[in-house]
Simulated assay, not measured.
Amino acid sequence: MDYKYIEQLMDRYFEAETTLKEEQILKAFFEQSEEELPENLRAYRELFTSFEQDEMLGDDFDERMLQMIEEKPQVKARTISLSERFRPLMRAAAVVAILITLTTALNQSFKDDKVWTDQSDYALKYEATGNEPAMAYDHSSDSLVSDSLYKPTGYLE
């Protein structure tokens, strides 16, 4: 048997170009027993026979839908201030400012490391004389304690 017409209707059905009458023809065709259907069209049988199992909407469908709509509370419009509108923009600007600050700080720290690495030969040129602790003590005592507090009493002048 030639099923070209059914295959054409199937193609039109999947492209949403069929009329209600053509869809009824497809439904009647697929209501046949599975053995009578051709092998290549058996997979589509459940697509058209499942309509029988669906519940019908009923005569009171419109009334039920209107009741459901009326039961829902009405949503009130909310006014949004200018600061609330710009809040996401301000957050984005803050993130950009933080990233720029961190990038600048990291770049500066890497530049400072270069300065110290450039002066690393200072340690090689330094020669220890043995007087460094005494010199450090003299300099720290001069800068930390004033002369009037540091002078011991009882000396003959």
Rank of each mutant, 00 (worst) to 15 (best):
M1L: 14
M1G: 11
D2W: 04
Y3V: 07
I6W: 10
E7H: 08
Q8V: 03
L9S: 04
M10C: 08
D11C: 04
R12W: 01
Y13H: 12
Y13W: 05
E15C: 05
E15R: 14
E15D: 14
A16V: 05
A16K: 08
T18F: 05
L20W: 03
E22M: 08
E23F: 12
Q24V: 09
A28Y: 07
A28L: 13
Q32R: 12
S33I: 08
E35G: 09
E36H: 10
L37A: 03
P38A: 14
N40G: 04
L41F: 06
L41A: 04
R42E: 01
A43G: 07
A43M: 06
R45M: 01
L47S: 04
T49N: 10
S50R: 14
F51I: 04
E52W: 00
Q53M: 06
D62F: 08
D62E: 10
D62P: 05
L66G: 04
L66H: 13
M68T: 04
I69F: 05
I69A: 15
E70I: 02
E71Q: 07
Q74H: 11
V75K: 09
K76H: 12
A77V: 14
A77Q: 10
A77F: 09
A77P: 02
A77R: 12
R78N: 06
R78M: 14
T79M: 05
S81W: 03
L82I: 11
E84C: 01
R85C: 09
R87G: 01
L89E: 07
M90Y: 00
A92E: 14
A92V: 07
V95I: 15
V95L: 11
I98N: 02
L99K: 07
L99A: 12
T101P: 00
T101W: 06
T103N: 13
T104R: 02
A105K: 05
N107C: 06
N107T: 03
S109I: 09
S109F: 13
D112V: 06
W116S: 14
W116C: 12
T117N: 15
S120P: 11
Y122H: 05
Y122N: 12
A123M: 10
A123L: 15
L124N: 06
L124M: 07
K125P: 06
Y126K: 14
Y126L: 15
Y126W: 15
T129V: 07
G130K: 06
G130F: 04
A136R: 13
Y137V: 13
Y137M: 14
Y137T: 10
Y137F: 12
D138W: 10
D138V: 15
H139G: 08
H139L: 15
H139Y: 15
S140V: 14
S141K: 02
S141H: 03
D142K: 03
S143M: 03
V145D: 01
V145T: 04
S146F: 01
S148R: 00
S148V: 07
T153H: 02
Y155Q: 14
Y155G: 09
E157L: 11
